[in-house]
C-alpha cells in the first residue's frame, strides 16, 4: 500500500521571499546548515532561531538559541514585535517543522506566511492511537510503542498539529502475523 496520502506533506526547496519586510528563520539542528545558506540571501531584516537542547558551536551571531521547551513562550512574547507581512521559514526534521508551524498558527499567524523545508534525516514521530504517546525518531515500521508496548504499523496519514504519523497495532487482527521491520523510505 504505497499510494501517496494527501495528508502526507510533499516538500520543495524553500525560496526566500525577498520582497517581505521581515524574515524569521526557525530551525532545529538538522535544518541549521540550510538555514545559514538562506540567511545569506537576506540582509538585516531577519531573525534566526535555532531550537536545540544541545550545545552548538559555530553559530552565527544573528541566531538566538532556544531550548525546545522554550520556543512556544518565546514566540508568544515575540509575536507582537513581528511586523505584519513577516515571513516564517521553518527548517529541520519533519516533526519539528510541523509542530512549530502549528505553534505559529495557534498565534494566528497566517498559514500563507509560513514556508517549510524538511532537512536531514527522514525519521518520523509516530502517534500511537491506542495510548496517545508520541514515539520519536522512528525509522522502521512496525515500531514498538514506548507507551503501551504494542507493535505499531506506521501509517502514512499525517497530522500537522501533532507533527506525527498515525500508528496502530499491526497485528490486531492476527497476533501471529507480525511483519518484518521495513525501513521507512520517506
Amino acid at each position: 500500500m504505497h499510494r501517496h496520502f494527501f495528508s502526507k506533506p510533499k516538500y520543495e526547496p524553500l525560496v526566500v521571499n525577498t520582497g517581505s519586510r521581515y524574515h524569521v528563520f526557525i530551525s532545529d539542528e538538522q535544518g541549521f546548515q540550510r538555514t545559514r545558506e538562506l540567511l545569506a540571501a537576506v540582509a538585516n531584516n531577519c531573525q534566526c532561531l535555532l531550537v536545540t537542547d544541545s550545545d552548538l558551536t559555530g553559530m552565527s551571531e544573528n541566531c538566538v538559541k532556544l531550548e525546545a521547551d522554550h520556543l512556544q513562550v518565546y514566540l508568544e512574547q515575540q509575536v507582537v514585535r513581528f511586523p505584519a507581512g513577516s515571513r516564517f521559514y521553518l527548517l529541520g526534521r519533519e516533526a519539528f517543522i510541523w509542530k512549530t508551524y502549528s505553534a505559529l498558527l495557534a498565534l494566528c499567524i497566517p498559514r500563507d506566511q509560513c514556508a517549510v523545508e524538511r532537512c536531514g534525516s527522514i525519521e518520523r514521530d509516530v502517534f500511537c492511537v491506542h495510548c496517545r504517546v508520541i514515539n520519536s525518531a522512528v525509522t522502521h515500521s512496525p515500531v514498538c510503542c514506548e507507551g503501551c508496548g504494542r507493535e505499531l504499523y506506521v501509517y502514512d496519514h499525517f497530522s500537522k498539529r501533532l507533527g506525527s504519523y498515525m500508528g496502530f497495532q499491526v497485528n490486531a487482527e492476527c497476533v501471529a502475523e507480525l511483519p518484518e521491520k521495513e525501513l521507512l523510505m520517506s
Binding site: 509575536v79 507582537v80 513581528f82 511586523p83 505584519a84 507581512g85 513577516s86 498565534l107 494566528c108 499567524i109 497566517p110 506566511q113
Partner: peptide, 9 residues
C-alpha cells in the same frame, strides 16, 4: 493604520 497592526490581524 495597516502598518501599525500586529501580525495575524
Amino acid at each position: 493604520l495597516l502598518s501599525e497592526q500586529p501580525l495575524g490581524t
